[in-house]
């Protein structure tokens, strides 16, 4: 039963990965990465049940916290930093 749930989550992650590869704008890719993060949290918790090791839930919790921080950090970089401009040393405030 948990194996079926894990397979469904993996299929969903594969679909999202297609969008991350296609995504015309960088925001599509960030959105896909964020969704994959959510799916990864679920896969980690399901995997904890699948193998009977509830420790995986702590990993899922940490991953969920890091996911949102990562998304917002990447967004901030794309909003204020400039990838095509190597001359900028400090991030503008």
């Amino acid at each position: 039963m948990f194996a079926a749930a894990a397979v469904a989550l993996l299929v969903a992650a594969a679909l999202v990965l297609v969008r991350a590869a296609l995504g015309p704008t960088v925001f599509d890719r960030v959105q896909a990465a964020n969704t994959i993060g959510t799916l990864a949290v679920l896969i980690l918790s399901v995997f904890g049940f699948l193998t009977g090791r509830p420790d995986f839930l702590d990993l899922a919790l940490t991953y969920g916290l890091l996911n949102v921080v990562g998304t917002i950090a990447v967004l901030k970089f794309f909003q204020y930093g400039d990838l095509g401009d190597p001359g900028e040393a400090e991030e503008p405030r």
């Binding site: 039963m1 948990f2 079926a4 749930a5 469904a8 989550l9 299929v11 969903a12 992650a13 594969a14 679909l15 999202v16 297609v18 969008r19 296609l22 704008t25 925001f27 599509d28 959105q31 896909a32 964020n34 969704t35 799916l39 679920l42």
Partner: peptide
């Protein structure tokens, strides 16, 4: 669990099918 898996896959399908960035966010 089946319902959860179904909605996750629906979100993935929507992320591929939707026409522009903002509508994709609704699917996600």
């Amino acid at each position: 669990l089946v319902a959860g898996g179904f909605f996750c896959i629906v979100g993935g399908i929507g992320l591929i099918r939707m026409p522009d960035f903002y509508t994709r966010m609704h699917a996600a």
